[in-house]
């Protein structure tokens, strides 16, 4: 396997020294619709260390995705504070939050969410395009990463010409190619068969170990739960179990 060349300014090592990768302090998320109030996340406080491989588990409606979205800055907490890499993102203006997401966070979604009009390579390089990284550099990094994660040769294929497992690998490549400090993955294996799912987990575990990228998953996948270094269970928006495996 080829090793991806990492630039110092873009590695997970740029996290604020000693600060948790993620820290939440009494975070609440309350939805109100037509007078009905739903407390999706209720006072969650936790700290996730750099290089962690963490699973958020729990039944549907337990608040896993909502918590993940708040950590990723996709939605704002109703109350409480969130720090990523030591930076308080709770009240960051929209533009700054977007910029911070671009540089520090990678996302992997259940439905892959690749842009259908772009090729695999173009999808993977998209965040680097937004960051203004030159085309030659983008292509070099993506092709190297594709070789590393076993999808070399698929660069020019559109998502519709890729299998589910291949699409999710491209999505993982898109999430990690910019060297974010944190990758947030919402049910990344839910649409995959067990073998493909297992291979994808292997891939992410390897990226976690070799590149030091912090992974946080929201999942129902027992295999992924089993492989997690840290297991956090949510029920009704609250942390009811927090176990570090090793």
């Amino acid at each position: 396997m080829k090793q991806v060349t990492m630039e110092p300014s873009e590695t997970a090592a740029t996290a604020v020294s000693g600060a948790p990768a993620v820290r939440t302090d009494d975070v609440w998320k309350v939805f109100e619709h037509d007078g009905i109030v739903v407390e999706a996340v209720r006072g969650v406080s936790l700290a996730i260390e750099p290089r962690d491989f963490v699973v958020l588990a729990g039944p549907s409606g337990s608040g896993k995705t909502t918590l993940l979205n708040m950590i990723g800055g996709l939605t704002r907490a109703t109350r409480g504070q969130i720090w990523i890499d030591g930076r308080d993102i709770t009240d960051l203006p929209e533009r700054e939050l977007a910029r911070w997401r671009l540089e520090r966070v990678g996302f992997v979604f259940q439905a892959y969410n690749l842009l259908p009009v772009l090729t695999a390579l173009e999808n993977a390089e998209f965040t680097m395009l937004l960051r203004g990284i030159p085309e030659d550099e983008r292509r070099k990094r993506v092709e190297s990463l594709f070789a590393e994660i076993g999808i070399a040769g698929l660069e020019d294929r559109r998502p519709s010409k890729l299998s589910g497992g291949q699409q999710q690998r491209v999505a993982v490549a898109r999430a990690v190619v910019g060297r974010p400090a944190l990758v947030l993955a919402d049910e990344p294996t839910a649409n995959l068969d067990s073998q493909t799912s297992s291979e994808l987990i292997d891939l992410m575990a390897r990226l976690n170990q070799e590149h030091g990228t912090t992974f946080v998953f929201a999942t129902h996948d027992t295999e992924l739960m089993r492989r997690a270094q840290r297991f956090i269970r949510l029920v009704d928006g609250q942390v009811v179990e927090d176990e570090r495996r090793r």
């Binding site: 997401r101 671009l102 259908p116 937004l130």
Partner: peptide, 16 residues
Amino acid sequence: RREFAVLRALGATPGV
């Protein structure tokens, strides 16, 4: 809409 949401999640500003 979903694709625009993905763009936003990936770090695109509303202006982008």
